[in-house]
């Protein structure tokens, strides 16, 4: 019977200042003190592991509430992720189109096919030109006849109304709108050239739209991150209220705020992690649903474009960001609400 109290005989002096270090583990016995170094870390880790598993178990006991909270977070995270994917894919697509920027150099009427070929050769010698192609008036007419279905009407024409055409593909690093415009100016000054067309406006507009899109993704990330903080914060706040008695008892037996807060922080992180995984699932499902039709559509345009998915680091950011936001949200809620629960206040 006396056994557990045998240690009472320790000197009282070291006990007096122990209160000043509330977070230090209390050495149960003098003889154990040299082991607090490594033992402290092991204990600390095992305490965290306990909270980690314990909080998960608590969430699992209320699957409906937990699932709904995670679903809301998941949808909130999926939205900016999908927006981000849209923007990246459109950018990739526009990159493909930019490669196909072409100048159309129309020769004056009456210029011969040879003149067209020498013009093409002159242009091709330039360093900013990758290749040229001559489309003679006859070829052009043939193509037009085949494509338009105006065959009989064209037959009524005495002369071929079409000029010879040289198409020019700029070198890959000369496809910016400015470089293309410069090249067009040079070609326009060459002898026998009637007109040069280089339609780069749509490329500029597309890039402008993509910039807007990227800004939208950023705004969506901020707005939805705040909403996740609020969602998790509110859930944890209710949780803290429901468990106020437990918190009070813990405080009465000497638990520090950190100790009491820990399981709530882990709950928040679990909510965020679950939401992040769900968001990843939503994104993958959307990609899966869209990839077929997109590939078919690309095929119709003669492109081998395929929808790009989330990169591994993006996926990690999504899930990790969710967990971090959950942790932060619960931390804010815990700091705000736990202080109000003090023993004696309720009486």
């Amino acid at each position: 019977m006396v056994r557990p109290q045998a240690t009472r005989k320790r000197p009282p002096a070291p006990k007096r200042d122990r209160g000043a270090r509330p977070n230090r583990r209390r050495a149960p016995r003098k003889a154990r003190e040299p082991r607090t170094g490594s033992g402290g870390i092991v204990t600390w880790l095992s305490r965290h592991a306990q909270s980690l598993v314990g909080s998960l178990g608590r969430l699992a006991r209320h699957p409906l509430n937990t699932g709904m909270t995670m679903a809301v977070i998941g949808i909130a995270l999926a939205l900016p992720a999908l927006l981000h994917l849209s923007v990246t894919n459109i950018r990739a697509l526009s990159g493909q189109w930019r490669d196909s920027v072409e100048l159309s150099v129309y020769l004056e009427h009456g210029r011969s096919e040879d003149e067209a070929r020498s013009l093409a050769a002159a242009l091709e010698r330039r360093p900013d030109v990758m290749e040229t192609q001559v489309v003679t008036a006859d070829e052009a007419l043939g193509q037009f006849r085949a494509a338009s279905g105006f065959g009989p009407a064209l037959d009524a024409l005495e002369d071929n109304p079409l000029p010879h055409l040289v198409t020019v593909r700029p070198e890959e690093n000369h496809t910016t709108a400015d470089a293309v415009a410069a090249l067009a100016a040079v070609a326009g000054d060459m002898a026998g050239v009637a007109e040069v067309r280089a339609d780069t406006d749509w490329v500029r507009r597309l890039h402008g739209m993509l910039d807007v899109g990227r800004r939208l993704v950023m705004l969506a990330v901020i707005v939805l991150a705040v909403s996740i903080l609020l969602i998790v914060g509110n859930t944890i706040r209710l949780d803290i209220q429901n468990r106020s008695q437990e918190i009070e008892v813990q405080k009465l037996v000497g638990a520090s705020n950190g100790f009491i807060r820990r399981p709530f922080l882990y709950s928040g992180a679990w909510y965020g992690l679950g939401g992040g995984l769900l968001a990843l699932g939503i994104v993958q499902a959307a990609l899966w649903a869209l990839s077929g039709p997109v590939a078919r559509l690309a095929g119709l345009y003669g492109s081998d474009f395929r929808l790009a998915g989330l990169k591994p680091e993006d996926a990690l950011l999504l899930v990790g960001g969710g967990a971090a936001l959950g942790w932060l949200g619960s931390g804010i809620a815990a700091a705000r609400n736990m202080r109000r629960i003090e023993p004696g206040r309720s009486e």
Binding site: A20, P22, L252
Partner: peptide
């Protein structure tokens, strides 16, 4: 002299 932060440590030396 026991600050708010030190209360938990103080209570650990007390059975209630």
């Amino acid at each position: 002299g026991v600050s708010r932060r030190a209360i938990p440590g103080f209570r650990r030396d007390l059975g209630i």
